[in-house]
Design a protein around this nucleic acid. Sequence first.
DNA 1: CATAACTGCCACACAGAAGTAGCACTTATG
DNA 2: CATAAGTGCTACTTCTGTGTGGCAGTTATG
Lengths: 178, 178
Amino acid sequence: MRADAARNLEAVLTTGARMLADDPSSSIGAIAAEAGVDRRTVYRRFASREELLAAIYDSRLAAVEDVVRAARFTETTVPVALHRYVEGIIEVNRRWPVELTRMRAEPSIQDRRSRLSTEVDAFLQRATHEGFLREDIPAGWASRLLIQLLHLASKEDMEAPRAADLLVETFLDGIGAR
Amino acid sequence: MRADAARNLEAVLTTGARMLADDPSSSIGAIAAEAGVDRRTVYRRFASREELLAAIYDSRLAAVEDVVRAARFTETTVPVALHRYVEGIIEVNRRWPVELTRMRAEPSIQDRRSRLSTEVDAFLQRATHEGFLREDIPAGWASRLLIQLLHLASKEDMEAPRAADLLVETFLDGIGAR
DNA sequence: CATAACTGCCACACAGAAGTAGCACTTATG
DNA sequence: CATAAGTGCTACTTCTGTGTGGCAGTTATG
């Protein structure tokens, strides 16, 4: 692929992610215009709107997979892995702010998604066993809470590392006074 | 208004809220069908799609206003008011699961919305002064965290009071082990 | 039960977006 | 610099959703 074509493709994907996060019904024409490209150019890469969405979602998923791999959930101490994971996901959320829930149906993507959440769940369970998390909370609450906090921290106007610190502190200690 | 007409109107509003929360681009036809009503009936009440959305949003806003009023932010102790507020909003979120962010532009609605968030912010500030919340957190973090936790707890499969307890506990203490 | 209110259905014009086709033009790369 | 890759533009068809009109039929309410 030619270098400029790759640049255009990248622009379409990231711009699309940003616009679709803001308005899920954004038209291909609008996305193309915002990316500085003709509508026809998008259709040369993607046969349909669905394919573009799948490609955007795939980009996000790949980025998340990289973060999970780099976090080394099973090989590092809980605090270190948690910080690496949180900081990484915040950056992914900012670059690929796509609402994951929108992509039901795609079986292959669904599969990768559930594999990731299994890994995170296992990590949280390990954290519980090692005494970092309370044991008297409903099943699933920790993981859903973490996801929600990640959405929140990603939108916060601060550097990813600081946002990650704030998130982890809130996650573990809440914001109640001692 | 005739009683059956009122029932239909109610069905259109609540069904619309539910469907639009799931897919913001739901068509009026789809909403009408799901509500067991003809598409034309919707257009007899609302001149346009925008008006229907505004009416749905207005319903939610009114419900939130009721909850805030009933919470008595300035007249009750912090823990009691917080619990009342949280439990009330969870119920509102379940009956009117509309994404508020979608309604930018409407000036009158925007106004009521900002008034509500001002009241909540003032309450959280009072809670901080009275020693219930930490003082060393960034401005706005507490209120955005609370909103996010409310989304999370509303989707949880448990009675509103239990979900409220879990939320408040997480809000104040986090989920880290002592 | 008479009446007014309300509804369902068929039909229509209109707008916007999806997707497709071909051609002239530009530009990265060997 | 020659060439193949890539792009922009105009135009077209198709489809779906919005919004409107009219009319026959049903139903709540006095």
